[in-house]
Design a protein around this nucleic acid. Sequence first.
DNA 1: CTCCTGATGTCAGTTGCTGTCATCAGGAAG
DNA 2: CTTCCTGATGACAGCAACTGACATCAGGAG
Lengths: 185, 185
Amino acid sequence: MSRWEPNARGRLEQAALALYRERGFEQVTVAEIAGRAGLTERTFFRHYADKREVLFAGSAALQESLVTAVAAAPAAATPLGAVVAALEAVGEQFDARRELARQRQVVIEANRELRERELVKLATLADALAAALRGRGVAAPAADLAAEVGIALFKVAFVRWVGDDGGKLAAHVRAAFADLRDGLR
Amino acid sequence: MSRWEPNARGRLEQAALALYRERGFEQVTVAEIAGRAGLTERTFFRHYADKREVLFAGSAALQESLVTAVAAAPAAATPLGAVVAALEAVGEQFDARRELARQRQVVIEANRELRERELVKLATLADALAAALRGRGVAAPAADLAAEVGIALFKVAFVRWVGDDGGKLAAHVRAAFADLRDGLR
DNA sequence: CTCCTGATGTCAGTTGCTGTCATCAGGAAG
DNA sequence: CTTCCTGATGACAGCAACTGACATCAGGAG
């Protein structure tokens, strides 16, 4: 038996989401989150760089999945096509945790600093996507553009998915992509 | 003659940019900025909500210009076409202050919190563009998509413009738009 | 002349975040 | 078994961002 309760990070994330939902991000102190998780404030900051980051622990895994999926897209796919395929592929990760994603999104949208942080995560995803595209031989300017537009599609699709009980995220990604094609016709 | 030196905001903005360039955003305290501007820390926070915001004073004017330009686009223009036309129209505002924009961008890119704030400003612009499009009778989903994609084009064009001495921003916007069309062919 | 307004100063306080050192269970090495 | 080391944690002091409350006072309105 180990000296401390296991899964400190998980406890911190749960405590933080619960408290943010109860009273709002600004009304919660880091000391309270740590206390509910049976830890101290100092330990919170050893696991998360700041008070916002605790809500974005999953973004690294998402990025990895996306990059892998881009690399695995058919060789004949266009840059944007590969990105869209990758976005569709990770859709299941969201579908499986619908309720958690919804709660998290409500908290994020209620606070400016959290919206800020989310945008940074999306921009980081765009950078990673662009790098993955370059790895497929796509030239840098085209890779940047496809990645940015892909993230724009994802943002639109995600909003529609959160508001659509039961629908699959991948379907919304495909729909947004189709809308873009139509809009450019 | 008035009681205080005029243009307190302008002095704060100049002092902040100068200090951020000299030592980097994190190494500068708000008290120092205020001191260089002949004011106190408390007064700084009366003009700007936080230490980052002082670098983004111009974004409100930019948003207003963009919204006006979208409203003024030809009635026959597609949603994305109207957004692109608006982006081209505001290009001159940037061309006229090339060096200032460049210095500001160097400071912003050197710091994570500032990059975060910039993304928020761009997202806010996207929201305003979408609203302006709805004002032209564009349905909400198409308006959101055109606005997001328009901002994606702007981000790409801006990066290219900053790295291209002498080129006009509007030209880079047109080029990015053309690239997108080509990529979807 | 008086009163009011608005930009500023002063000061105390909360909290996010960091540096530093102490603690101590359990595994590795002897 | 004893010793040493490692890694996660706690304890504590401190800085700086940001806020609320109250004071100040030049100049305009009346």
